[in-house]
Design a protein around this nucleic acid. Structure first.
Lengths: 139, 139
DNA sequence: ATATTTGCAAACCGTTTGCAGCAAG
DNA sequence: CTTGCTGCAAACGGTTTGCAAATAT
């Protein structure tokens, strides 16, 4: 059976190679926000004939096709790797545990509404936004 | 007369070189959000004996001293340069014109409050956040 | 058959760093 | 005098790319 992303690719008329199928599967199954290295690890685990260059090309392709969303979370270690997740029907933002690294997804209608209003107040139509909350667990 | 940033540096006991003084002045006078190349341009305009390496070292120093804030605005051209601004007494977020590139600062108490609540609802203490609105001018 | 994709390694770009000389305290 | 700063050029790390071979359609 083909993965969720593979279906989307087919729907968009993309040429499906073994590599793309594997990467599509890895990303479809991910419920975290892996970076390219991690996708590469998981993909080569399934099929070793995949190069990191192809992973880079493929996540970019998927992103441009509106299948994946790219994030640049600010992270303690200062490493600057982009992380990816499947675009979901429901838009959401992220709360990042700066100690543990976990990422919690949330959606707040009220904030979204306020953001739109702020843009309008300044004479702008809001076309995108980025909101990341950074926190530490209360124990 | 010494610039706002220079005063802060002195207050923190930093060794003041000509290069640092010039860079401090450039950043104190900036009311935009220049990247390193732009700071370098403005600085060498005043005194050509400044290298880009020193600009990099100095903005990092100022950032770590809590004098500057670093931003990584998402930008159409895909270029990934960090941009800097003097930390202001009043915290604010940014509305970025994705066409013109202008950056508008704003502050919304209500959103800040909601962000804190969201973090708490998930068992986190909010320690930082990043909120950028991307818009197009309504003509 | 042809157009697209791949792996490889080299290039890229923003940023950092080792080092020897220079300047601040 | 000592410690820290600078310029230079080389290294870095994540990402992209030119190319010839391999593959999808």
């Amino acid at each position: 059976m083909s993965s969720e992303i593979e279906q989307m690719c087919i729907a968009k008329g993309m040429r499906m190679t073994d590599q793309r199928r594997v990467i599509a599967k890895v990303l479809s199954n991910a419920n975290d926000h892996p970076d390219v290295e991690e996708v590469y690890r998981r993909a080569t685990d399934i099929d070793s004939r995949i190069s990191i260059a192809t992973v880079y090309r493929t996540v970019r392709l998927f992103e441009e096709a509106g299948i994946l969303e790219r994030h640049d979370f600010r992270v303690e270690s200062g490493e600057n790797r982009a992380r990816f997740e499947l675009v979901s029907e429901m838009h959401h933002d992220h709360l990042i545990d700066i100690e543990g690294g976990e990422v919690i997804e949330f959606h707040d209608k009220e904030i979204e509404e306020l953001q739109k209003k702020i843009a309008e107040k300044h004479g702008y139509k809001l076309v995108d936004h980025r909101m990341e909350l950074y926190g530490v667990k209360i124990r």
